[in-house]
Design a protein around this nucleic acid. Structure first.
Lengths: 104, 104
DNA sequence: GTTATAATTGAACAGGTATTCAATTATTTG
DNA sequence: CAAATAATTGAATACCTGTTCAATTATAAC
C-alpha cells in the first residue's frame, strides 16, 4: 500500500477535503442513515438553506451524496457504505488517547 | 450515529482536512508501514524538505504521525491503525463506479 | 572548534474557499 | 393565472492555507 500515484492522491484528497469542513461533515452525518431534505437539514444544523445548498452541490458532485426530488423538496443521503466506515474509524481515532507513539 | 455534536465535528473535520491535501496525503502514505526520514520522503515525493517539514508539523500536531530522532535524521510514521483503515476504505470509494444513487 | 548534513522555522505571497445576501428557478396550491 | 414554499445560483468578501525562500537549529564527522 505504501506508494500512491499522484492523481490517485489528488482524487482521494478531494474527498477528504470535502468532509474536512465541519459544516459539510455534519451535513454528511445528517443524511447518513436516511434521506433528509434541504430545509430540514438547515434547520437541524442551524445553517441557512443557501449555505447548505452550496455544500450539497459539492458533496453531490463528488458522488458522496445522492439526491432525489419529491415534490417541492429535494432529499439527500450518503451514497455508499465506505463513508460510514471511514467516519466510524476516524471518530475512534479522534477519541482515543495517545498510543503507538515515541513522541508527540 | 446520525447526530454529531458541534465540537466533535470540528475535531473530526480537522483530521480530514489534514489528509485532504494531496501532498500531505502522500506523506502519510509514505510512512504508513514503516518509519521514513524527512529527506527520504522529500526525495521520494519530489518535494522540498522545507515543505515536507511544514506538513509534518501539522500531521504530528494532530497526532496522525509520530516522530523519532535517530542521529541527524528524524523518522516519521503513521500513528495508528485507524489511519490505515480509513485510507483503505476511501481508496475503495474513489475507485468504485456509481451505485446506490438515484441521481448524480 | 570547524565543516557538513538534516531538519525546522518564519515571513511573505498567491490562490483558494466558506459564508452572506439578493435574485432566480422549480414545484405545488388556490 | 397568481401566491407560496423549497431550493438553487451568482457575486462579493473576508479569511485561510499551501508553497517558496532565506535563515536558523541540531547532530555528526573531522
Amino acid at each position: 500500500m505504501p506508494t500512491l500515484n499522484e492523481d490517485t492522491a489528488v482524487r482521494l484528497a478531494e474527498v477528504f477535503h470535502l468532509i474536512g469542513d465541519p459544516n459539510r461533515l455534519r451535513i454528511v452525518f445528517a443524511c447518513l442513515d436516511e434521506p433528509v431534505c434541504v430545509s430540514d437539514m438547515a434547520a437541524r444544523l442551524g445553517l441557512s438553506a443557501s449555505l447548505v445548498s452550496h455544500h450539497l452541490r459539492l458533496l453531490r458532485a463528488a458522488r458522496l451524496l445522492g439526491s432525489e426530488r419529491r415534490g417541492k423538496q429535494v432529499f439527500y443521503r450518503a451514497a455508499d457504505e465506505h463513508i460510514r466506515s471511514v467516519l466510524r474509524d476516524m471518530a475512534e481515532h479522534v477519541e482515543e488517547p495517545d498510543e503507538h507513539q515515541e513522541s508527540g
